[in-house]
Computed example of a mutant assay.
Amino acid sequence: MADIVNVRSATAADAAVVARLQQDMARELGTAGEPGFVDRFAKTWLADLERRPTWLAERDGRAIGVLILVVIDKLPWPGQAPGRWAHVSLVFVDQADRNAGVGHLLLGEMLAWAAANRVDRVQLNANPNSARLYRKAGFDSAPARLMELRI
């Protein structure tokens, strides 16, 4: 069937594809293009790929969506087992493929991976247009004590 979406873990060989999807999202948000961005992104992503598990959604062999996770290992604490948490740094689905369950498939693969890899908390910054997707996947608002300072 031509409309089947496959979700798989991205590998080093996918660096340019992941960079293109990141660039597509930036353009959609109104950011101007940047010469050399794909190479700059690929180099940075590859340098820390172990801590940045990434999933690609593909239809007919073409990447139509991406999810990038950043994994942080907690420092040891007396009397507690080591833990990890993660931040979803990017979820993007091509506009033509939205509202067809692609984001849900990407989140499902990421959450299964997180459960199997000792991740005890996943956080993200929800765009108002995608908050419903995240709530359906089980995400909720952060505790009131979570604070942020932008520099």
Rank of each mutant, 00 (worst) to 15 (best):
L46K: 07
D48C: 13
L49D: 03
E50C: 09
E50A: 14
R51C: 14
P53R: 10
P53N: 11
P53D: 12
T54Q: 03
T54R: 04
L56M: 15
A57E: 12
A57V: 15
A57G: 14
A57D: 14
E58Q: 12
D60A: 05
D60Y: 02
D60N: 08
G61K: 09
G61A: 09
A63S: 12
A63V: 09
A63I: 05
I64C: 09
I64T: 03
G65F: 06
V66K: 00
V66N: 00
V66L: 07
V66Y: 02
L69H: 05
L69Q: 08
V71D: 12
I72C: 10
K74E: 15
L75K: 13
L75F: 15
P76C: 12
W77R: 05
P78E: 09
P78N: 12
P78W: 13
G79Q: 01
G79S: 01
Q80N: 02
A81W: 04
P82F: 00
G83K: 08
R84G: 03
W85P: 01
W85Y: 04
V88D: 01
S89H: 11
L90Y: 09
L90Q: 14
L90G: 08
V91P: 08
F92P: 02
F92H: 11
F92A: 04
V93P: 01
D94Y: 00
Q95I: 11
D97G: 10
D97Q: 15
D97A: 15
D97I: 07
N99W: 10
N99P: 07
N99I: 10
N99L: 12
A100E: 11
A100T: 06
G101R: 11
G101P: 01
V102N: 00
V102F: 00
V102R: 01
G103K: 09
H104I: 03
H104F: 06
L105G: 06
L106I: 12
L106N: 13
L106G: 12
G108C: 00
G108E: 01
E109K: 07
E109F: 04
L111H: 04
L111C: 02
A112V: 13
A112S: 14
A112Y: 04
A114R: 03
A115W: 02
A115Q: 09
N117Q: 03
N117Y: 11
N117C: 08
R118Y: 10
V119A: 01
D120V: 07
R121N: 06
R121M: 06
R121E: 02
R121H: 10
V122I: 04
Q123N: 08
Q123V: 13
L124I: 07
L124N: 10
L124A: 08
N125T: 10
N125C: 01
N125A: 05
